[in-house]
Design a binder for these strands. Structure first.
Length: 858
RNA sequence: GGUCGCAUAGCUCAGCUGGUUAGAGUACUACCUUGACAUGGUAGGGGUCACAGGUUCGAGUCCUGUUGCGACCA
């Protein structure tokens, strides 16, 4: 047999598969199966989380493809607005320029160049992993067709009044601009709680407010207390003067104030705090901005103008302290929002942005409630529901250049504002040519939200028709059957796809959602570059193989639990592949080629037994894959192939070579069952064992996935195996090498050869009654005896005593159960009967054990 | 603070609708260099299923609480 060199074989075989179009949709098939690839960042590279998600997707896709579905795994990449723009901005900065200096058009050209240059990396890496999407249909969230889909979607929502422009408080990153609520990450922060004294007008009194952000006090437009607070009742309606300024602001009352926190009096800064913003609206307060969009303090901050907001904080505290306005400063732990991209501290900031109104999600919530989409594991539905219930308007505009520019135009002549799918040539109202487009772009997730149908041709215009998508696709592949992705983007992406899908197509975008967990290191730690515990999938693939990487991830992919990955697990999988290779080598030693199972008649007893075991494995793997229990399916394969096929099938076949032909066919069929998990090795071995070794014409990946059959269970070999184990046990226990054994069981003559060879004895006799002067090993379905004189009996007595104890406990348990009237009355009849039967069996066994002990001690 | 999840053999984990003696892999012990494989084979030891209550004829499995860990939201 040829040596197996995974690195070479995986690369060359992948090319053959791809070049022959094996990954493409076979429109001849009747049943459809569609799954979208969550588009990775176009300029990114493969990390372990990708390896997991794409492995799981590929397993399902290969399974469905083999099982006769017209299978579409839609590939593509995402333009990743902020991330990509940041990379290119840095490059330009390194050249000593800013993006403003080179201008929008030239900058975008640079980004496109960067995209062209680095865009192929991740798709190349996906190929290395063995992923089998329909590459010819690869899309990019900013390709022409998808740009059109985005503009159409925007215009529809705009015209329906669901997209609106508003001057609201948003999460503002001084570097990246406006962010949506979920793009903010909260972290516990040890800060200071500063108590500032505000002098009350026409009085010697002060009112003290506590704040974590003293630099915003220049924007205060009120001091607020709880109307029930006795301490401050007399001050309501009076005025205070802001320290270091001439500005006077009122003391107002509002139930909203927490009397317990700080001093019970709070400063109100409507321009820089979301809660104060609401208060400001309620009480008609002015909005005074203290810093600009870059976080630089403005003229309202007096002498501090020009400082960065965070630098200013210390300076302001210092000054206030010197002037006697600070009462005290306390340590204070609180949550601070950071930009998910650049980690800068987020500021609540009032600005004009575009919002998608939460009402858009109404139908999506209903659809989920009706069970039109199923979550795996099911508990994610709770999270989804909770989030959807508390949904807020989605801020969709971003102050970036890279992305889908908002298709809204403003006429400078008549002031008209309109959305347009096509680039307009004039204002539709006054026909002026003096208009401009909104400079902002859309949140990246806006285009991803359309992915399940935009890639199927929805509103793509003529672009890509017949090449990237076909007319029938929306009908055949929408709703998609399944979505597999990480739980971390449930809100970012899954929920938004639901919203858009239901809104535009009146149907949920997918029937099943499988959310997998995070991959952690072997100690359960999150992988991070700074910790140095990152496992690089590409390194692992180089070191082991794509198959081994895939199988390891699959066998660890338990629903609802994080994956702890270690190199030890990889080694276990490697040992498994070695076992498979050697099993094939054994088969090939006896026969060069094997037929596929459909052309082989299973005639021998061993063949039938093996076929039965195989069929059980097929049944289990199918069920487990249908329920997305990847770990169970992988484990079933591992156990079936190693324990059943190799340890027993192959070993037993050494007794009589007549079964090898059948075992070879069953093995080839087993490779098909394993193929989705280990596409390359199974292809290699399948070819090695086949007469026609032409992958192009005989690839395993397009063979039928094994079907389950109704089979009668052959029992002889179960007994043979039990007898072999029993004899081996006596040998191991007594460390003696006897030549003859007796087995009390009904077995055919042919069993003798198998038992003799595998248990390594010279003579075996099947008996109907126990023999004298022998010791026994009692197992579940038979008894094995060896002449007493041949062996040391002490260990046997030990085992018998142990068994006796265990049996007595058992019997007691059953008897108590059967003594219990309630049990007899309330438990189902069959359970009662079963218990009685079990009790009898246990008693039977106990008496045998006791008798045996008596005899031995005689 | 709110919501959710997890806790089973030394380690990593299965155990789906409650019903035989709670299972794997790995590690451990002993034996085996028998022509597929030492990345192997054979046999064995190892668990009061986190704790406390409850429901039930019956609980690792359902309910409540406690402790510990984790995630998400505020």
């Amino acid at each position: 047999m040829r040596e197996y060199n995974p690195k070479e074989f995986e690369k060359s075989t992948y090319e053959i598969w791809e070049n022959n179009g094996f990954f493409e949709v076979d429109y001849e098939k009747e049943k459809n199966f569609c799954i979208m690839m969550p588009p990775p960042n176009v300029t990114g590279s493969l990390h372990i989380g990708h390896a997991l998600t794409f492995t799981l997707q590929d397993i399902i896709v290969r399974y469905k493809r083999m099982d006769g579905y017209a299978t579409l795994w839609q590939p593509g990449t995402d333009h990743a607005g902020i991330a990509t723009q940041n990379v290119v901005e840095k490059q330009i900065l390194a050249e000593g320029k800013t993006k403003e200096e080179i201008g929008r058009e030239k900058f975008l050209k640079r980004v496109w160049e960067w995209k062209e240059y680095s865009g192929g990396t991740i798709t190349k890496q996906l190929r290395r992993l063995g992923a089998s999407p329909a590459w010819s249909r690869e899309r990019f969230t900013m390709d022409e067709g998808l740009q059109r889909a985005v503009r159409v979607a925007f215009k529809k929502l705009y015209d329906e009044g669901l997209i609106v422009k508003g001057n609201y408080m948003v999460n503002w990153c001084p570097k990246d601009g406006a962010l949506s609520d979920i793009e903010v990450e909260y972290e516990t922060h040890k800060g200071k709680l500063v108590y500032i004294k505000y002098p009350i007008l026409d009085s010697n009194e002060y009112i003290t407010v506590a704040t974590t952000r003293p630099e915003t006090y220049f924007g205060d437009t009120a001091v607020m207390v709880n109307p029930k607070d006795e301490r401050y009742k007399h001050l309501i309606g009076k005025k205070v003067r802001l320290p270091l300024t001439k500005r006077e602001i009122p003391i107002i009352a509002d139930e909203y104030v927490d009397m317990e926190f700080g001093t019970g009096a709070v400063k109100v800064t409507p321009a820089h705090d979301p809660n104060d913003y609401e208060v400001g609206i309620r009480h008609n307060l002015d909005l005074i901005k203290v810093f600009d969009e870059k976080g630089i303090l403005n003229e309202n901050a007096g002498e501090f103008a020009g400082l960065d907001r965070l630098e200013a904080r210390e300076a302001i505290i210092e000054k206030l302290k010197n002037e006697g306005f600070i009462e005290k400063i306390e340590e204070h732990t609180h949550q601070i929002g950071h930009c998910y991209r650049c980690k800068n501290i987020i500021e609540p900031y009032v600005s004009t942005q575009w919002f998608l109104k939460k009402e858009t999600a109404k139908e999506a919530i209903e659809a989920a409630n009706k069970g039109e989409v199923k979550f795996h594991p099911a508990q994610w539905k709770n999270n989804y529901d909770a989030w959807m219930r508390e949904l807020r308007d989605w801020c969709i505009s971003r102050q970036l250049w890279w992305g889908h520019q908002i298709p809204v135009y403003y006429c400078q002549n008549c002031g008209n504002e309109w959305a347009s799918v096509e680039e307009p040539s004039e204002c539709p109202k006054c026909h002026s040519k003096n208009f401009f487009q909104d400079p902002d772009v859309l949140d990246t997730w806006f285009s991803s939200a359309l992915w399940p149908f935009s890639t199927l041709g929805w509103e793509n215009g003529k672009w890509g028709k017949g090449i990237k998508w076909n007319e029938v696709d929306l009908k055949r592949f929408y709703p998609n059957n399944l979505l597999i992705t990480g739980f971390d983007i449930l809100f970012f992406w899954v929920a938004r796809m639901m919203m858009m899908g239901v809104h535009f197509l009146k149907e949920v975008p997918f029937r099943d959602v499988y959310l997998h967990a995070l991959v952690r290191d072997e100690h359960g730690q999150k992988m991070s570059k700074s910790k140095g515990n990152v496992i690089d999938p590409l390194e692992m693939i180089e070191k082991y193989s794509a198959d081994i990487m895939r199988f390891t991830l699959a066998i660890l992919a338990v629903q609802g639990r994080d994956i702890k990955l270690s190199e030890n697990k990889m080694i276990e999988s490697r040992n498994f592949t070695n076992k498979l290779y050697n099993a094939a080598r054994f088969l090939k030693m006896h026969k060069e080629f094997f037929e596929d199972l459909e052309n082989t008649e299973i005639k021998t007893e061993l063949g039938k037994w093996m076929y039965y075991k195989f069929n059980e494995a097929v049944k289990n793997v199918r069920n487990e894959l249908d329920e997305y229990r990847f770990n169970d399916a992988a484990m079933t394969l591992y156990r079936y192939l190693w324990n059943d096929f190799c340890d027993w099938g192959i070993e037993l076949s050494k007794v009589s070579k007549e079964s090898i032909n059948e075992l070879g066919s069953i093995f080839k069929e087993s490779l098909k069952l394993l193929h989705p998990f280990m596409p390359f090795l199974t292809e290699f071995l399948y070819q090695e064992l086949s007469k026609n070794q032409d992958i192009e014409k005989n690839t395993i990946m397009l063979k039928n996935f094994p079907k389950t059959r109704e089979l009668k269970k052959p029992t002889d070999f179960d007994l043979i195996i039990e007898a072999i184990i029993s004899i081996r046990r006596i040998k191991a226990l007594t460390q003696s090498n006897f030549k003859k054994a007796y087995v009390l069981a009904k077995l055919p003559e042919m069993a003798k050869e198998y038992i003799k060879k595998l248990a390594k004895i010279e003579d075996i006799e099947f008996i109907k009654k126990p023999i004298e002067n022998a010791i026994k090993d009692i197992s579940d379905n038979l008894e094995t005896m060896v002449s007493k004189k041949d062996i040391d009996i002490k260990p046997i007595i030990q085992r018998l005593n142990k068994q006796k104890e265990k049996m007595q406990k058992e019997i007691l348990k059953f008897e108590n159960k059967l003594k219990n009237k309630n049990f007899l009355e309330k438990a189902p009849q069959n359970i009662v009967e079963q218990t009685k039967k079990e009790l009898n069996e246990a008693k039977n066994k106990l008496s045998k054990i006791e008798e045996e002990l008596r005899k031995i001690n005689d």
